[in-house]
Design a protein around this nucleic acid. Sequence first.
DNA 1: GGAATCAATACGGGTGTACATATTTTACCG
DNA 2: CGGTAAAATATGTACACCCGTATTGATTCC
Lengths: 196, 196
Amino acid sequence: MRKPTHKTKILQEGLRVVHERGYSASSVRDIIQAAGVPQGSFTNHFATKEAFGLEILELFYEPIQKLMAETLLNDALPPLKRLRMWAETGVNSLNQNNQWNGCLLGNFGAEANAEIDTIQARLAEIFSEQQRNIAYCLRAAVKARELPAKTKCGDLAVFIHASFEGSLLLAKAQRSLVPTERFKKVLFSTLLSPSA
Amino acid sequence: MRKPTHKTKILQEGLRVVHERGYSASSVRDIIQAAGVPQGSFTNHFATKEAFGLEILELFYEPIQKLMAETLLNDALPPLKRLRMWAETGVNSLNQNNQWNGCLLGNFGAEANAEIDTIQARLAEIFSEQQRNIAYCLRAAVKARELPAKTKCGDLAVFIHASFEGSLLLAKAQRSLVPTERFKKVLFSTLLSPSA
DNA sequence: GGAATCAATACGGGTGTACATATTTTACCG
DNA sequence: CGGTAAAATATGTACACCCGTATTGATTCC
C-alpha cells in the first residue's frame, strides 16, 4: 500500500489551520487549500470533517504524550524537577513564534457544539490522562519528601491542569506571555515550594 | 421610540444559544428561531453578527461586574471572605442546571477567528479588568494581614484568574463538577490559606 | 408625519459531502 | 519472475443546503 502523502499533508496543514482559526471557522476548502491538494483528497481520506478533527486531535496529542513520558512519568528524575520541565516545555512549545493560539485541546473543549460529540468524548479521556499523570508525579514528590505528606495529590493535579489550560487560554485572548509566565512563576514559588 | 422587545429577545435567547453551542456554530437563523422572531429583526437591530456578539458579551459581563463590585471590591467585608464569595458564586452561577457550558468569556477567547477581532479586543479588556479586581482584593488581604506581606498580588491575581477560567473549561469538557470543585478547594486550602 | 420597529423574501457565495473516473501501488498466481 | 486483478489513492466536479446580509415595504408609536 502506497503511503498516502496527501493525507499526511492534510493532517499537518489542517492541524495548523484549525489551531490558528478554530475548528468551526476552518472550512474543508481552507484546509485542502493550505495543504495544496485537491478537494477530492479530503473526502477520500476522511469520511467526515469530524473524523478529520479526531485525527488532528491525536496528532496534536502525540508530542504531549511523549513529553509527559519523559517528564511527569520519568522516575529517573526528581519529581518536582520533572513537573517543572513539563510545565515549562509545554507552555513554551505552545507559545513560540509569537503565536498565541492556545492549546488545541482547550480550544476544542471550548467549542461546545454537540455535533462534534465524539471529539468531546476523546478530549475528556485525554484530559483525564493528563490529570492522572500530574497526580502520579505529585505522589512521587510526596514520597521523595519534596512535598508535604498531607498534600492532596488528586485535587492538586486537577487544579494545576486547570491553571495550565487557563493560562494558555488567557495568553491567547490577551495576546501576551504574561498569563503563562505568571502561571509558571506562581506554580513553583507558592503551590509547589518545598515548604508548601 | 418604542422599546424594541424583539431585540431584547434576540439578545437573551441568542446569549443562551451561543453559550450552549458556541459562536461560530450558532447561525443567525438558529438565534432568531430560538428568540421566536422573524429573520428581518436580526438585520434590523444588528449591523452584523459580530455586532450582535459584542452585545451579548456585554450582556453576559454585566452580572459578573455586579458580582465583582459586591465581593472583590466591597471593602466592607474581610478580603479573603470576599474572594471566596466571588469564586463560589461565580463558579456556581455557571455550573447550575446540570449544564456545563463553561464561561462565555473563556469560550469566546478560545474561538480564535480573526474575523471576530473586535470581540477579542473587548475580551482582553474584560480579562484585564477582572485581574485588576482580583489583585485589588488580594492587596486588601495583605493589608488586613490575611495574607503574608511578601505576596505578589499581581502575579497571583492572574494565576487565580487562569485557574478559574481553566477549571470552568475542564468542567465543560469533562462534563463534571470535579474541576471547579477542586479549584475552590485547592484555592482556599493551599493558595490562600492564612499560612501561605 | 417621521422615525423606529416589524416582517417577508431574495441574493450571492460558502458549506460539508457525494460521485465518477483516472492513476498508481500492492498482492496474488502462473 | 512477469502479469494481472484488486485495492487504494488522486482528482475534478456536482449537489443540496446553509450562511450572513440586503432589500423592500408594512406597521406602530411619539
